[in-house]
Amino acid sequence: MKSNIVWRWTAMAGIVSTLLLVVGFGYGVNDILNPQGMELSVDTSTPKQPPATSDFAAKTSIQVASIGDSLTRGTGDPSGEGYVRKVVKQLSVKLDKPVKLLNNLGINGLRADQLVHKLDEQGFKNAITEADLILLTIGGNDIFNSALDGDFTSQSFELDTLLDKVDESSKDLKKILLQIDELNPNAKIVYIGLYNPLADIQSMRQIGDTVVQRWNNLAAATINKHPNMTLVPTADLFQAALPSYISSDHFHPNALGYEQIAYRVIQGLAP
């Protein structure tokens, strides 16, 4: 008799679950084959508010967002920290309050024109809007891309072509800076200036320096108009001591190079 009861329960449970699954199968197939697309309303009832003040001293904790290219990513630093994590760490010590990295949105190979579009993405907006401090590197790929490919001899590496490129991409940088400022007018925006990764190649040195200087000047022209923006120069570091600061790919800084960049950023933020 006992096995009779067991059988009954097993059969019942088995039939019920099979029926349920068969119905689910029907629904699933129907849903995949005839998807009913619908316009979705996004709940924007509570938009993120930018911080109320830009004064670090008045805050209990600092939130950092970093955007840009491979330098922000930390490429070339074996520890993976890059200047971003070093800044976060040292700033926390200097200010004696928690400093938190919201997002490191550095993307290898990103160019300024691509970043302009990225800033429309919701995730970028979230991070920028909530941050107290925004770290930015961009531009190196716009200008030195052809150098990375080892393409020194072609048209693309003549001074005039490069200077044209600089003028073109600087407009994108300006757009980026203004867009960040609009999203979060109370954040401190730190732009890390370009350096010349070709400083130790005799034939390239002068061209590289000229181009980098032009770029940094154009960047400064925008940054100077906004008190919440800072330009941190790096060109001088890599001019004289390039071999000690550059990584083996001859483009990105190494750990020591990032250390120096971080140090400079900190100097400007928390004297």
């Binding site: 699954l21 068969v22 199968f25 029907g26 699933g28 998807p35 009913q36 697309g37």
Partner: peptide, 21 residues
């Protein structure tokens, strides 16, 4: 994305179960 629509997770589970079945 034109055909994307939200389903409650319970319904998703039922459909998923059916396909697995």
């Amino acid at each position: 994305n034109s055909a994307v629509h939200p389903v409650p997770q319970w319904l998703y589970l039922v459909m998923q179960g059916g396909l697995i079945w």
